[in-house]
Write a protein that binds this DNA or RNA. Structure first.
Length: 252
DNA sequence: GCGACAG
DNA sequence: ATCTTGTCGC
């Protein structure tokens, strides 16, 4: 088999997103999601990939499971992986999802009782060119509720960093305040959330799978000690720590 | 050519 | 993603 030209690959990926999107659930499906204090929620997951400096192929895939609401570490898995797909905006899922699914599968086999009830994903969900970002793809393929949290605004479907957008950010007074990210079509694709009182720069929250946007935003805020929700922050810190330990600085 | 470009 | 320390403030 010869590798398809990048152009054809992208077309194939687009059609796969379109197909998987039909299985996407944008509503609350779990009992705990409907409780004001999320009672019944005990385990939240976070996933991330970290890279060695000059290397965009070898990475550490990380999964953590934290207790809710205490955010204490219950499980962690670090695994070196070799990525095959390049990073192309809009197709991040095809680069990262396989390894995150493998991590979830290892957990399912080894400690099924620790499976998270919701997974925080570093990247967008519905807030995406074709409304099917990384958090959606991981959600549909794993069957788990997922929330997408991006640290930077993806300018998509008419949403962009305008003066208006900047003033909406300036109007976020305290942790938990948010404003909708509305597509040209009128659909609300996500929300910009001031995740804590101290952080001025918002995070961009969107539905991944099996959770409503309002629940996703409220849950994200409740998991934030710092700007980035704790499950993602822990996954990020621990995967970098793994790389530091196993791949010490390769120069002077 | 210019700007955008989740991670 | 990664390149990168100190510094200012509470």
């Amino acid at each position: 088999m010869t590798a398809a030209p990048a152009e054809d690959q992208v077309r194939q990926w687009e059609s796969e997103q379109e197909h998987l999107r039909q299985q996407l659930v944008e509503d609350d499906t779990e009992a705990w999601q409907k409780n004001p204090d999320f009672s019944g929620l005990q385990r939240v997951g976070g996933v991330d990939l970290s890279f060695i400096k000059g290397d965009d192929v070898n990475a550490c895939a990380q999964l953590v499971v934290l207790s809710y609401p205490d955010m204490e570490l219950l499980y962690e898995d670090s695994q070196m992986v070799t990525l095959t797909a390049p990073y192309i905006a809009g197709f991040l899922a095809f680069r990262e999802t396989p390894y995150l699914l493998e991590a979830l599968q290892r957990l399912k086999e080894n400690r099924p009782e620790l499976l998270p009830q919701v997974v925080f994903v570093d990247g967008n969900g519905l807030f995406h060119y074709r409304e099917f970002g990384l958090a959606c793809q991981l959600g549909v393929l794993s069957g788990l509720p997922c929330v997408g949290v991006a640290k930077n605004l993806l300018q998509v479907q008419g949403v962009h960093k305008s003066e208006e957008h900047q003033s909406q950010i300036a109007a976020l007074q305290k942790g938990g305040d948010s404003f909708p990210l509305t597509a040209a079509s009128g659909k609300v694709l996500g929300k910009a959330l001031r995740s804590s009182d101290k952080s001025v720069k918002p995070v961009y929250v969107s539905v991944g799978h099996k959770i409503s946007l309002d629940t996703a935003v409220r849950l994200t805020h409740s998991c934030c000690r710092y700007r980035v929700p704790e499950p993602i922050r822990q996954a990020d810190c621990r995967s970098r720590e793994y790389l530091r330990k196993h791949f010490p600085a390769a120069d002077t």
